[in-house]
């Protein structure tokens, strides 16, 4: 699924990386806890989160996650937008809640989740 399609499905606003919307993602991870994100192993991932602080960008950067969606109408600060630009990331904002945003992407065909081993 392209990021452009995600923007359409989530009625999202693009706050960084608007020139890269043809990027393809294959899996999604919805989490507010960054350690949960780090337990998630997949490539070409979109991260959906309600956490709006620089750690969300840093966690995504460390995991090579290029697309982050902030849910529930939250907006990242200028410092976060700057960090995202430096790292070539795309930031989106949607008014949908985490549940609805994940549900809409799933319904549209983005089905792959993480492959975390449960001990």
């Amino acid at each position: 699924m392209t990021v452009e399609k995600i923007v359409e499905i989530l009625d999202a606003r693009v706050v960084a990386g608007g020139d890269c919307l043809d990027l393809e993602v294959c899996a999604a991870c919805g989490a507010d806890l960054m350690s949960d994100v780090m337990a998630f192993v997949k490539d070409r991932v979109v991260l959906l989160t309600g956490l709006v602080n620089p750690q969300a960008i840093r966690t995504a950067d460390l995991l090579d996650i290029k697309v982050v969606v902030f849910v529930r109408g939250k907006t990242p600060g200028d410092d976060m937008v700057e960090m995202a630009r430096e790292n070539g990331m795309i930031l989106l904002c949607t008014k949908y809640s985490m549940f609805l945003a994940c549900g809409r992407l799933y319904e549209a065909g983005l089905r792959a989740g993480g492959v975390r081993e449960i001990a």
Partner: peptide, 9 residues
């Protein structure tokens, strides 16, 4: 509240 401290570190 900052997204950490879930006992996963």
């Amino acid at each position: 509240e900052l997204g950490f401290g879930a006992g996963m570190g």
